[in-house]
């Protein structure tokens, strides 16, 4: 009897392990989708680069000016899950110099590395998954033009169970989707462009939307503001709700993204400082599009406990 019970437990455990292994397997982007992309254009890719904010995390800590184009990595993100260290993504042997376009597309759209491991979503592929394949082809071409670095960034230092990379396969089943976050009825072309920039490459929701205990973005409170993902303080509500930007005009929003100044001439700080440096490189029409989208989305109360 006891032997039978033991057998049952072992079989159940094996079944569970097999199920976990099956359900957590990394899945790549359909190759046919990637094959449809035209050869990348580095000029257009530069726009994607600034919209995507790659330099904010992948430039060496404290880099300014042209040094932000050296994507040496080493930036530490100290979060409740542990410390993530950004990798070198410069075109060198220590970076991603040997990657194919398909490798970059799988990293950004599916969060899968060339050797078939899951990336942690501190790398915001949950947003990048909404990007057009052609934009990634263009970005690929642009990244090739940047200066190489031989820096080797340290490993992530994470707490259990977050240290079990394979587990991300289950997490992705819950939270990785290429669908738009919301539908704006009767959206103008500017709003559609803004939606693409905000929900996709701009990955605004990664910090401006509250997350649940296992780090899933709460889309019912999209852009409502959240506790800062690292360190102290908060990331503000950027909907029209309380503490948000309801009183800002579209021009105000576009100017804040370009200059860092709010309508009452406070200046944006924290991680947003780098975002402004990136956004300042965009075409004025793109900043205006982001503003149009932010004014078109539903207002929410603050996504964090009142101050």
């Amino acid at each position: 009897m006891i032997r039978k019970l033991l057998l049952l437990v072992i079989v159940a455990a094996l079944g569970g392990a097999a199920g976990f292994w099956f359900l957590s397997a990394p899945s790549r982007v359909d190759p046919a989708r990637l094959a449809a992309a035209a050869p990348g254009d580095a000029g257009r890719g530069e726009r994607v680069f600034w919209a995507g904010g790659c330099a904010s995390c992948h430039a060496a800590p404290g880099a300014s000016g042209d040094a932000r184009l050296v994507l040496a990595g080493g930036h530490e993100l100290v979060t409740p899950f542990g410390t993530f260290v950004t990798p070198n993504i410069s075109p060198s042997a220590k970076g991603i110099g040997s990657w194919s376009f398909e490798d970059l597309a799988n990293a950004m759209l599916a969060g899968v590395s060339p050797d078939g491991r899951h990336y942690y979503p501190a790398f915001p592929y949950t947003s990048y998954a909404r990007m057009q394949v052609q934009d990634i082809a263009d970005l690929y071409a642009y990244l090739k033009t940047l200066p190489p670095s031989d820096n080797v960034a340290a490993d992530h230092r994470l707490r259990f169970p977050y240290s079990v990379r394979r587990g991300l396969g289950l997490w992705k089943r819950l939270y990785l989707s290429s669908d738009p976050v919301l539908t704006v009825a009767g959206a103008s072309d500017a709003i559609k462009r803004g939606q693409y920039l905000v929900e996709g490459p701009g990955h605004c929701g990664e910090c401006h939307t509250p997350r649940n205990a296992i780090g899933g973005v709460d889309k019912s409170r999209w852009l409502a503001g959240a506790k800062a993902p690292e360190g102290k303080g908060v990331v503000p509500n950027i909907t029209g709700g309380e503490g948000g930007i309801g009183s800002w005009s579209e021009k105000d929003i576009a100017y804040a993204l370009e200059s860092g100044f709010t309508p009452d001439f406070d200046s944006l700080g924290g991680s947003m400082t780098d975002v402004v440096l990136n956004m300042a490189h965009l075409e004025p029409a793109d900043r205006a599009a982001i503003a149009a989208y932010l004014k078109a989305i539903p207002a929410h109360p603050r996504g964090f406990a009142a101050p």
């Binding site: 800062a228 360190g231 102290k232 303080g233 908060v234 990331v235 503000p236 503490g243 200059s259 860092g260 100044f261 200046s267 944006l268 700080g269 924290g270 991680s271 400082t273 780098d274 402004v276 603050r302 009142a306 101050p307």
Partner: peptide, 17 residues
């Protein structure tokens, strides 16, 4: 002169609301 605003707030100011 105005780039100093953001540069200083990046590190030495936190948002609370």
């Amino acid at each position: 002169v105005s780039q100093n605003c953001g540069a200083c707030h990046q590190t030495y100011r936190i948002k609370k609301n």
